[in-house]
């Protein structure tokens, strides 16, 4: 088996194991503290394997990862997983691994079976656009995970079913704070991505419906995230409202990616 395949298999296995461990901790009543401690370690094995896989795959395909749409989703999820490992202690968001690990697993499998690495000549501008979006999406993925867990945890507490998840999910404030900081850090990258994307699209895009939709989704993402940040600063919108806003913004960011992937798939088919 070629090395790239071995690394791919190792990455998938490590992510799948991490998923199982995270879910086992959250799914079993009372939690499994030892398992919970082990899960991030497995994820920490998966992340370098994933990075190695992207590197090897791009070498094999003779495509620079930041110039190929094929690697974007995979790289974003890799960034999110790496960020999680760095931030989990600082923000006390260990359980967020249960969101990040399956997202990374899905992305790495998706990148393998959906589309092929294709070089798009675009020079530095495209590379900058993709890099900014990859890093920004990694942060938004984590922020969306924090928002989703916030809503779960908040519902448990409101409905007085707190015992079920006591000690297993991060504290509400920790999730809210992590989501806000990640959004704050990702927003300039998103802005950069949108600016470079706008310039790029003026140069090469045809003005098709897909291009228009992608542009609209990208601007909607920016507007929603901007609104979440501004309303928090001005009107104290935190917690549930911020979580819904973050999830809505992330949904548009995913929609942008979906439009890209759909267009790539259709191009390949035609």
């Amino acid at each position: 088996m070629p090395p790239v395949e071995l690394v791919f298999l190792g990455t998938v296995l490590a992510y799948a194991t991490a998923c199982a461990l995270f879910f086992a901790h959250l799914g079993v009543r009372g939690g499994l503290p030892r398992v919970a401690r082990f899960a991030p370690l497995v994820l920490a094995v998966a992340v370098p394997l994933h990075a190695a896989y992207i590197g090897l795959a791009s070498i094999v395909a003779h495509v620079c990862p930041v110039e190929s749409l094929h690697f974007v989703a995979s790289a974003s999820s890799l960034g999110a997983a790496a960020l999680y490992l760095v931030l989990r202690r600082r923000f006390a968001i260990d359980a967020l691994g249960a969101f990040v690990a399956p997202a990374a697993l899905t992305a790495v499998l998706g990148s393998r079976f959906v589309g092929v690495p294709v070089h798009r000549a675009g020079g530095g501008l495209l590379a900058l656009h993709i890099t900014a979006n990859v890093l920004g999406d990694a942060m938004f993925l984590l922020a969306a995970g924090a928002a989703a867990l916030y809503l779960v945890q908040e519902k448990q507490l409101k409905k007085k079913r707190a015992r079920g998840l006591l000690g297993r999910l991060p504290a509400l404030d920790a999730l809210d704070r992590a989501g806000h900081r990640l959004l704050l850090a990702g927003f300039p990258l998103l802005t950069l991505g949108i600016i470079t994307g706008s310039v790029w699209s003026q140069k090469v895009e045809s003005g098709s419906a897909a291009d228009v939709a992608r542009g609209l989704f990208a601007y909607a993402t920016w507007l929603l995230f901007a609104a979440v940040l501004v309303l928090r600063a001005v009107a104290g919108w935190r917690g549930r409202r911020a979580a819904y806003g973050t999830l809505a913004g992330f949904a548009f960011a995913v929609a942008v990616l979906v439009v890209y992937l759909a267009r790539a798939a259709m191009t390949r088919l035609s």
Binding site: L157, A162, L169, P170, A171, L172, D173
Partner: peptide
């Protein structure tokens, strides 16, 4: 206290 920690953390 446990519930307060679920909301506020530390």
């Amino acid at each position: 206290v446990d519930l307060a920690r679920q909301i506020f953390g530390d």
